[in-house]
Design a protein around this nucleic acid. Structure first.
Lengths: 129, 129
DNA sequence: TAAAAACTTTACCTTAACGTAAACTTCATG
DNA sequence: CATGAAGTTTACGTTAAGGTAAAGTTTTTA
């Protein structure tokens, strides 16, 4: 099975994810993606594409690019020493706690918004009727 | 019941929420809080304190100060015209969608982190044993 | 009452995450 | 083959959210 080694140009990805090519190059500058090259031209693999997707998900969560890179480092990290594994586990825990706090915050805000929404709707009924 | 009309100084709040006085003044500058004054000195009411708490919660969610102010405006808004109410409802919907997207993102990342965590733990066992 | 502590304003500095413009190269195609 | 589209680098500009420093006022306290 010689599977079609799919690749993407920078503008392919820019369109797909609705970001500028400037941004994508900037992420590379910050060592978040490392596309290969044909001559000068960047060529993105499916893995690079996944990376970009992860970067953007991070952004939606309010991660800085530096934080996202640390997460990438977690995945890629040297898993050979006990030290390393412990460091990694505590980093993971830190992130998890942070995300759980965010979850709680979101839940609260969503409830508040729903309550305002309901009040608005009923006031709207009153005004129209 | 003459309840103790509690107030706070800027550094009271700074300590409680672990932010700098500079930040608190900056939020005022951006019209997010409006403490009263005794002479020049700022005096914060319990309501002001709640506002600050909300600002910080917004920050944890990655809201910009401008966004948070828009949310405040939603709460305080003129609820008299049908127009207004419709605008408000669509803003609320927008926010809700955004937050729901964030929830999904967080859920996914949490699961991924847990999976990495499990792998780390088992590798740790192998190394130690 | 004098000195320290806490408050104030004004103003310039910093960092992250790009936007924008200039000037150049490579490639497809009418 | 020239021209236009897409790619590249370099470099300066911009915005948000404060940090930091200077210079002054007010309040507390020894």
């Amino acid at each position: 099975m010689i599977e079609s080694q799919k690749t993407y140009s920078i503008s392919d990805l820019a369109k797909e994810f609705e970001v500028t090519t400037r941004s994508i190059r900037f992420y590379e500058d910050q060592s978040l993606i490392k596309p290969s090259r044909r001559g000068q031209t960047r060529i993105y693999s499916p893995q690079d594409r996944v990376r970009l997707k992860l970067i953007l998900r991070g952004k939606r969560l309010g991660f800085s690019l530096a934080e996202t890179r640390r997460l990438f480092d977690l995945y890629d990290a040297d898993r050979s020493s006990v030290q390393q594994l412990h460091t990694m586990l505590s980093l993971i825990d830190e992130k998890k706690e942070h995300l759980q706090q965010q979850m709680e915050d979101i839940t609260v805000v969503l409830m508040e918004l729903s309550s305002v929404e309901t009040r608005c709707q009923s006031e709207l009924k009153d005004l129209i009727k």
